[in-house]
Amino acid sequence: MATTANAYLGFNGKCREAMNFYKGCFGGELTLQTVEGSPMESQCPAAIHHHILHSALTKGELVIMGTDMVHQEHVHGNNISICVNCSSEEEIESFYGAILKGGEVLDRLEERFWGAMFGVVVDKYGIRWMFNYEKKK
Rank of each mutant, 00 (worst) to 15 (best):
N85E: 12
N20G: 09
V84M: 07
N12P: 15
I48W: 00
D123C: 14
G13Q: 05
E61K: 12
K23A: 10
G97T: 12
M19V: 12
M69S: 08
K14D: 11
A18G: 08
E110P: 05
G24E: 10
Q33W: 00
G10M: 08
V70T: 15
G66M: 10
A18N: 09
I82H: 06
E36R: 02
K124Y: 04
I82L: 11
K137I: 11
S87F: 05
V70K: 03
V75F: 15
I80Y: 03
V105R: 13
V35S: 06
A5I: 15
M130F: 14
Y22S: 05
E41S: 08
Q72I: 01
G24N: 15
V120L: 00
D123W: 04
S88R: 14
E134D: 12
E111H: 04
N85F: 11
P39M: 09
Y22R: 00
G66C: 09
K135E: 14
I48H: 04
T34F: 04
P45Y: 05
A47D: 12
E90D: 15
N6A: 10
P45R: 01
A46Y: 01
T31G: 11
S88H: 11
C44H: 03
T67W: 15
R128A: 05
A7G: 12
Y8R: 05
I80D: 00
A5Q: 14
P39T: 01
S38F: 03
C86E: 11
F131N: 04
S88M: 09
G102T: 07
E110N: 13
G66E: 07
I52P: 01
L106T: 02
N6Y: 13
Y8F: 15
N78S: 05
D107T: 14
H51S: 00
F118I: 12
D68P: 09
R16V: 02
L106P: 11
E61V: 09
L57N: 01
H74C: 09
S87Y: 03
K23W: 06
R112N: 12
E111C: 06
E134N: 15
A7Q: 09
F26K: 05
E36T: 01
W114L: 06
E111D: 14
E36D: 08
E90L: 05
S55Y: 02
E111W: 02
L62A: 06
S88C: 12
Y125N: 09
E111M: 13
K124D: 06
Y96W: 14
K137A: 15
M1E: 07
D107M: 14
M1K: 08
F21P: 05
G24W: 06
G13A: 08
E111F: 11
S38K: 00
F118A: 02
A2P: 12
R108L: 00
A46R: 09
G119D: 03
L109Y: 08
I52E: 02
I127H: 06
T58I: 15
F95K: 02
M65T: 12
E91K: 06
I82Q: 04
D68F: 01
M130T: 13
V70M: 10
Q33R: 05
R128N: 14
L9N: 12
V70A: 15
G27K: 05
E36N: 05
Y125S: 06
T58S: 14
